[in-house]
Amino acid sequence: MSDPILEAAGLTRRFGGLAACDGVAIALRRGELHALLGPNGAGKSTLINLLSGDLKPTSGSIRMKGEEIAQLPPERRSLRGIGRSYQKTNIFGGFTVFENARLAAQSRDPRSWAIGSDAGRDPVSRERAQRALGLAGLDAGTERKAGALSHGEQRQLEIAMVLATEPEVLLLDEPLAGMGAEESARMVALLKRLAGTHAILLVEHDMDAVFALADRITVMVNGQVLESGPPAQIRASERVQRAYLGHGDG
């Protein structure tokens, strides 16, 4: 098995007396889709926020290709190749669809500081944006206001923005939430394709999608890792059955 790109150990985050994430260890490898399961409040989003830098850990380490990044701010982690999407759609509603993706792509461009040129005509960021929108299945109507898109399209844009930064690691927080069947199927196909070349951490409640996509599954309960392994192992695990799957909570 290849070395992990992103690896966390003993990752803990306390909010007052509550440990939302308690000594979590997780490793993400290129070409592997790693799904994160757990009931609401298990600490899945907290873990994503810790890995992306939106939250700072109380203790523990996060290594990206062997380098410690636990204290780096989110923008530095993004530049190192960690891209994340948000559970609650987090786009620039007042911008056009295209400009959302173009701005995301611009973050990789050293000319992002230029004050004399017209951003809307920059060929590099335009091309990257177009490619990302195409991947996410949002080719058409990109001059619409992002805020006017349907919920499913906004979720696609959310992914397109992450892809426009061309990350190696994708942290995806419920990308399928609220999508219709057709959009959902398209997103699953996209994730499958991306999994070949990226390291993906996927938080998702859609069990069918998770078991269809995941190479490895980690189940969290109360901020701790309950079980981690290939899908077959998770499906067979009695602890998981007892703590989670049996509850019908997801």
Binding site: S52, G53, D54, P73, P74, E75, S78, L79, R84, Y86, N90, I91, F92, G93, G94, F95, E99, R102, L103, A104, Q106, S107, R108, D109, R111, S112, W113, A114, I115, G116, S117, D118, A119, G120, D122, S125, M161, T165
Partner: peptide, 25 residues
Amino acid sequence: RSPFGRALSGIRANEQRMRALGFPV
């Protein structure tokens, strides 16, 4: 209209997202 100016507009609209995209806000 420049890349710098677009980044400022992005910061006004959503600072958290801009950081997650890699902008040194």
